[in-house]
Design a protein around this nucleic acid. Structure first.
Lengths: 262, 262
DNA sequence: CGCCACTTTGAATTAGCTCAAATTCCGTGG
DNA sequence: CCACGGAATTTGAGCTAATTCAAAGTGGCG
């Protein structure tokens, strides 16, 4: 599915983009600020909405495609996958959710959820009735901003996912996936040097649009290149000594065929 | 990129999904209702926000990645593409927008737009300041619902796009793209038997994650199978005698290899 | 009328898939 | 505690869908 040529396909160009995005560089500081902001947000939610807490375990489904919409869920701990189903039976992991992410936005439009939300680990979600949230937002506009920010982030991220799938070769997609996972943890103040993938190769492959074998081969190659390292006993634990090396690996995959001798 | 096996990869199953989604069948009536709803929505926007109108022409960029966020745009006529840019120069069409769609949600979270929005045709957008919209929503909660519905639809659709790219082979992706385009027009009360693609093969290919040659071949095959028909003189006009035939074509692509003689 | 951008089609190449087999891990029950 | 069985993973070998490269065809527009 990867295809360098399409890169030049769509029209215009880079313009002021790079400059504008070059600003936030100091990674750690940014993450601390983001993490700080999340704490405030959670406090706001807790005070204004007194959400019901619900503990979930791996495999639990908090909502299902087709089910009547009513609640939004804020992920307080654990990991979720969002699974889309097609009428003809295809199944697709379309999103991964971490602490602080909201779940259920897809249900607002049609008044029915459009996907399944499945826990991949033990965790806790806060259940918020959409009606109650709207009411609370009228009283506290700051809450409205929090809500919109969460939706906006989701939209922006979904687009990045589509871009990865459409423009990166398989190996780079896996590397970018690990980078994204590590980055997501970092933003939440969690350690990133050693992460536990809570998905099978098959799930990762489904999410990235490739087979489980391709995922396995890509991970092996990443390990061979010392970009990642498997913790002995159990291939679900991955050590990432340097997240930057993952980005570099992605770039290497995109680089034109290395001309030997010349 | 297509890969039937991943279909079984992710866990659970179909549950109540099919039943729930089998409800809206009577296509025309549904579209009339949707179209009616759109008119009401536009009236509400016009009355409450008195948005500034802006005429655009093909190629016009109404906002750019990196630019400071401030406005949302409601597409009143014409067609837009949303283009994502990566730091390393990859370009990806991540969305297509039709009449009634909103543009700019991606900018709320980071206070900068994350993509470019480019007109593909002459049209008109309504410019709404996000601040003004929030203020108006406090006075008129119906407006808030309209706003959230638009965001939610976008999230749901982005996921469907990812699913298409990840689970459909190239030919099916092109067929599904045409189906989506026709469906989008139908929802807006426009004719769907003859549509004008406002994108080059390269743009379509970029959007669908394949090369322009593959798009061309897929279209040729669709024409050979009489699922579509090219209007003579100019290969941008496509006749779709029966939208259902496009869905059938997609299913045929997914079907297990037809066993001959047995 | 002629250029240029877009499109189509063919032929050769290849990234990633399918199929298959071996290996490791982990939970379960004896 | 260890043996067993099922699930997940790894790796190899061959195959195929889609890409790359190339060349010819078409249409719109100045």
């Amino acid at each position: 599915m990867f295809n360098p040529s399409q890169t030049q396909a769509a029209a215009p160009a880079m313009n002021g983009f790079l400059a504008a995005h070059a600003l936030p560089q100091a990674g750690v500081a940014v993450h601390e600020r983001a993490s700080q902001k999340m704490v405030e947000t959670q406090k706001l939610l807790k005070e204004r909405l007194a959400p019901q807490r619900r503990v979930v375990h791996a495999g639990d489904v908090i909502y299902q495609a087709g089910e009547r919409f009513g609640n939004l869920y804020i992920l307080n701990s654990g990991f979720f996958k969002i699974v889309n189903l097609s009428a003809d039976g295809r199944e697709q992991v379309v999103g991964l959710k971490f602490r602080g992410d909201w779940l259920g936005f897809d249900g607002i439009a049609a008044n029915h959820y459009a996907c399944d939300a499945v826990a991949m680990d033990t965790g806790e979600v806060w259940v918020v009735s959409y009606e109650a949230l709207l009411a609370a937002c009228l009283a506290e506009p700051g809450l409205l901003q929090v809500f919109h920010t969460a939706m906006s982030r989701e939209i922006a991220h979904d687009r990045d996912s589509l871009m990865s799938v459409c423009t990166l070769p398989a190996d780079a997609r896996v590397a970018d996936f690990l980078r994204y996972w590590a980055e997501s943890l970092a933003e939440r103040g969690m350690r990133t040097d050693q992460i536990t993938l809570r998905m099978t190769r098959a799930e990762i492959g489904n999410y990235l649009g490739m087979t489980l074998e391709s995922v396995s081969r890509a991970l092996s190659r990443l390990a061979r290149d010392k970009v990642i390292e498997f913790v002995e006993k159990g291939r679900r634990e991955v050590q990432i000594p340097d997240v930057g090396a993952l980005s570099a690996f992605v770039q290497r995959c995109l680089a034109p065929a290395p001309v030997m001798l010349q």
